[in-house]
Simulated assay, not measured.
Amino acid sequence: MSRAVNARAGEPGGPEPVRLAVIIGSTREGRAGEAVAHWFAARARRRDDLAVDVVDLADFTFPHRYPCAVTPHVAAFTGRIELADAFAVVTPEYNHSFPASLKQAIDYAYDEWRAKPVGFVAYGHRSQGFHAIEHLRTVFTELHMVTVRGRVTFDLLECGDGVPPPDDGAAARDAGAMLDQLTWWALALREARAVRPYVS
């Protein structure tokens, strides 16, 4: 096999690094999501095969009603989604699901999501965000995405003053495994989309 076939993404002769969008799904004041997202993004940036873009929903002013015409902030958001090869969605669990701010943002894009992988970094009280993750799997499957098996979760009751907690061994291992899965799927699906258009 040629060097290009064997090389990892980001290595000389290998494919371009995977463009990973880390989406902060909560816009609530005092949210833990920003710290969790930047922790995860910092781990992803240690890898040569990933180019990381943190997409914070709090940076966008979305309309209160679904607009008839695309607004500049909606266009900016969907443009960043289109550029990404893979996604890590950072979400809290509110009332056994994910926040409305995240659902609103997801619904502004469609084609931009398709045939790409997504993983989840979730946090909550006791449940560690498991219900939010399972609801998001259903939503993203409807958008023709691959949801990876790996996940990263935090119980805020166990984190104390640190989110993520100082002893993040298990979370770090989970993050590494999920990033491996996202990278594999992102490369495979990017190559597939280049060969033939995705059909819904």
Rank of each mutant, 00 (worst) to 15 (best):
I23P: 03
R45D: 12
A75T: 02
L157G: 14
H96I: 03
I106Y: 06
D59L: 10
V146G: 04
G176N: 14
R137W: 01
A171K: 06
L189M: 15
I133D: 03
E134T: 10
V195L: 14
D59W: 08
Q104N: 13
F62C: 08
N6Q: 13
A21T: 05
E93H: 09
V139L: 12
V70P: 01
S26E: 01
V36E: 05
C68H: 12
A21W: 01
A88L: 10
G79A: 04
V146A: 12
E34F: 02
C159M: 13
V52K: 08
G10W: 10
L143P: 02
G150Y: 03
R46N: 11
F77P: 01
N95D: 13
D48F: 02
D167R: 11
Y94T: 06
Q181R: 11
T141Y: 08
V5N: 04
V152W: 02
A170Y: 04
N95T: 12
A115M: 11
R45I: 05
A171V: 05
A122G: 11
R126W: 08
V195W: 10
G13T: 01
T153N: 10
E82K: 14
L157H: 09
A115V: 12
G160P: 02
R19C: 01
A21P: 01
Y198P: 03
P164C: 10
T147G: 09
H38C: 00
T27Y: 02
L182C: 09
A175G: 07
A86Y: 07
A122N: 10
W113K: 01
R173D: 15
G79L: 04
A186E: 07
V54H: 05
V121M: 08
M1D: 05
F154R: 01
R46H: 11
P92V: 06
A4F: 04
P72D: 06
M178D: 12
D167N: 14
R173H: 09
A37K: 00
A105C: 10
M178Y: 11
A35W: 04
P92T: 04
F40D: 02
R193S: 12
C159P: 06
A175E: 06
